[in-house]
């Protein structure tokens, strides 16, 4: 677990983000992308149980969530987070990106899906969509 911090959020200000991925490299890369977009990484989690605990503690504006993780995997983690907080904004970011899995992730409550490797532009577009719309997105960001 990394040191936790929160950005001071204005209407259009930096977002507080939770990064969930079992890969230290993937978390490093996503943190770098979020830094480049001037958002704040409030915390990181390496599995689903850590993610649920961090989400409940921090209530981040946005969650970036992997799917394939040891223990509690990503889709079930999203389901549990969104059952407890239907307003949760989760973007799935995974190399496993077949149709049924994307539909499963969206049905679990994810707002958007980006296949890895993610670029800065794709991440920015996804965040903009998720933060601008209240309704469920039914397509890849």
């Amino acid at each position: 677990m990394v040191n936790e911090k929160r950005a001071s959020v204005g209407a259009k200000g930096p977002l507080n983000c939770l990064i969930v991925d079992d890969s230290a490299f993937a978390r490093f890369r996503l943190r770098r992308l979020m830094d480049s977009l001037d958002h704040c990484v409030a915390s990181e989690a390496a599995n689903g149980n850590e993610a649920i605990s961090a989400y409940n503690r921090l209530k981040p504006d946005i969650v970036l969530m992997d799917i394939v993780m040891p223990g509690l995997e990503g889709v079930e983690t999203v389901r549990r987070i969104c059952e407890a907080d239907p307003q949760a904004r989760v973007i799935m970011i995974s190399s496993v990106s077949y149709r049924d899995k994307i539909e499963e992730a969206l049905a679990a409550g994810a707002k958007c899906f980006i296949p890895k490797p993610v670029t800065t532009e794709e991440l920015k577009r996804a965040i903009d969509k998720v933060m601008d719309k209240d309704e469920m997105l039914d397509v890849r960001c």
Partner: peptide
């Protein structure tokens, strides 16, 4: 390795 394999199994699943 995970990205390469994930991409392949996604195509196979589709």
């Amino acid at each position: 390795a995970s990205m390469a394999t994930g991409r392949a199994i996604s195509e196979i699943n589709n």
